[in-house]
Design a protein around this nucleic acid. Structure first.
Lengths: 172, 172, 172, 172
DNA sequence: TTTT
DNA sequence: TTTT
C-alpha cells in the first residue's frame, strides 16, 4: 500500500489554525493548482485541493502563509466521512500534509528572516507529548488572525463518536 | 504548479466502464489504501480513494482489474463540482489516473498472458481522434459486466452546462 | 512497475541545450535540493540531482531558467551506463523530467511576460515528428549561451554501441 | 525544496544488511523498474535503481525481501561522493527509502504470517537511541545470509573524513 | 459505505 | 465557490 501526494500551488485564502482540546495545532488551507493544459474554451482551469497539517508545521503555515502564497505540500490523501447537518453521510477527500514548503521569493512580505533560514515546515512527529502546550507556542511573526481560535477533537479525521464540539470546529 | 499522486491499493469493487457520446472510454474505481499506522484502538484504517481513467487504459482497467485486485495509480488530483439533486453544490475530489499498474501475481486468476506481456496501462494520450470508435474495442478478456454501458458527457469533470445525460451517467 | 520523482530546487548553473543529429532538443541541468534536516554539524546539506529534458520543454528550460532559478521537476529516474575514457563502465542515475515548472516570482529578471502566461513546460510528446527542425526553433528570449551547440545521439540514454560522437556530447 | 520518489519494481538480488559501529542497521538493494514503453528495437528496458534504508525497516527488508521480490519504495533521492580507489571522485545518486512496501502475493514463499500482518516497513525514526542494539535484533525469519555482517560508518552518505573502514563496507 |  |  502506498499513498503519496506532491502539490505546488497557491493558497486560495488565509490558512485557518485551530487547536484540539489537548492543545494540538491543526491548520487547514486550500491550494489552487493550475492544470497543465487548457480546456476546450482555451481556459486554464485549476484544482482546488483541501489540505490539513498538524502540530508545529500547522503553526508555521498559519504564521508564514497567507492568501496567494505559493506553497508546496508533500503528504498523503486521506478520506473520512461524517454525518451532515441533514443526517446524510458526507464523504471528504483531502490531503494530509506531512511537510509544507514556503515557495515565495525572499523579498516577499513577511519573510525578512536572515540568511540561512529554511523555508520548509517538516515533521508531523508521530507522538509529540500532548496536552501541556495548549494555546502555547503561538508567538507569531505575522500576528495570527484567529485569536480566539476554536477547539477541535484530537483527531478530526476519525469522526469517532462523542465529540463535544460543533461541526464548525471541524476542518472544512 | 505541480500535482502528482501515486497510490497502491486494492479495488473495493469491480471497476465501472462507461463511454461518452463520442465514444471515449472512461473507467472509475475506488482504491482502498491501508494506512501505514494504527489508530488509538490499534486498528489499521484505510483511505478509500476514487479514481478515474480515460481511453485505452480505462478499457484495460475494466478488463484486467476486479474487486480485490491490487493496483498502482500514477496521476493527479482533480476537483470538480456539480449541482446535487437537492440543488446544493456538491464538491468532488478524485484522482485522475494517467497510468494504472496491475500488481497482481502472474499466477492470479485471469492473468494467463504469455511471457513478455506488460502489466501497466499507460498513456491517456491528450488528443486521440474521437468519435469513430464508439462502443468498439471492447473485446474483453473478462467479459465486462456493464453491457449496455451508459454514456457520459465528453468531459465529466467539466460539469459544463447543458449536459443531456442524467446524473447517473457521471462517474461517481 | 512505477517510477515517479518530484523535485523542487535551484539550478546549480545555467542549463545546457544540445540537439541530436535529427534535431531533437535535449537540455541538462542540475538541481540543488536542500535536505529537510541538518547533519551532526548543524549544517543544511543539499542533494545535487542531474536532470534531463527533451524536445520543447528542453528549449523552454534553456530559455527561461538559469543558474539559481528555482524550478520544479516531475519525472522518472533513469539509469544508463557507458564505457568511460579509461575503459571502465560508468553508471549514471539521473532524472528524466517529463515536465519542468518555473517557480520564480513574476518580478524576477527575465520573466516580464504579461498576465496569463503559464510557467510550466509540459509534455515530452512520445513521438514528435523528427528531423526537420534541426537547429531551428531556437529564437530565445534570453539568448542561449551555447551557441555552437553540439550534437548528441538520438538517445543519449541508450549508450548503445556505435555512437559517432564524442563523450562530450553526452548529457553529463 | 521538495524531493520525493516513489518506485515499484523487483529486487535484482538479495538485499545486503550491514551495521554501523554504533549498531544501526542499513540495508541496500537495487530495484529493477521496467520502463512503460519500448525502445526502437521493441524491447522493454528497465532502470536499475540503488536504494538504501536504515534502522528497523532495513532489517525488515533483509528478512522479507529477496531477489525477485516485488517491492514499493517511498523516499528521496540522495547524492554523495567519495574518493575512488584510483583517487578520482566518484559521484553516487541513490534513493533513500523512508518506507518499503512488500508487494508479493500472500501465497508467496516466506510470507506465511497470519491474518492481519502488515506488509509495509515504515518509519526511519529520526533519532532512535543508538549503540546498544549492535548486532542484536537479527532473529530473522529467513535466515539472513550475511552472517558476519560488516560495519559501516554511522552515516555512509556523509563521506565525512576519517572513516576506519574499507570501501567494501560502504553501501554500493 | 468499501479492499486484503 | 476559491490562487497568480
Amino acid at each position: 500500500m502506498m499513498n503519496r501526494v506532491v502539490l505546488v500551488g497557491r493558497l486560495t485564502k488565509d490558512p485557518e489554525l485551530r487547536y484540539t482540546p489537548s492543545g494540538v495545532a491543526v491548520a487547514t488551507f486550500t491550494l489552487a493548482v493550475n492544470r497543465p493544459f487548457s480546456n476546450q474554451q482555451g481556459e486554464r482551469e485549476a484544482d482546488f485541493i483541501n489540505c490539513v497539517v498538524w502540530r508545529k508545521p500547522a503553526e508555521n503555515v498559519a504564521n508564514f502563509l497567507k492568501k496567494g502564497s505559493m506553497a508546496g505540500v508533500d503528504g498523503r490523501i486521506q478520506t473520512r466521512n461524517y454525518e451532515g447537518q441533514d443526517g446524510r453521510r458526507v464523504y471528504v477527500t483531502e490531503v494530509l500534509a506531512e511537510s509544507v514548503q514556503f515557495l515565495e521569493p525572499k523579498n516577499s512580505s513577511g519573510n525578512t528572516g536572515g540568511g540561512g533560514r529554511s523555508n520548509d515546515f517538516y515533521g508531523a512527529p508521530p507522538r509529540e507529548p500532548q496536552g501541556s502546550s495548549y494555546g502555547g507556542g503561538n508567538q507569531n511573526q505575522r500576528q495570527n488572525s484567529n485569536q480566539g481560535f476554536t477547539r477541535v477533537d484530537d483527531d478530526p479525521f476519525a469522526g469517532s463518536g462523542q465529540i463535544d464540539i460543533s461541526d464548525d470546529d471541524l476542518p472544512f
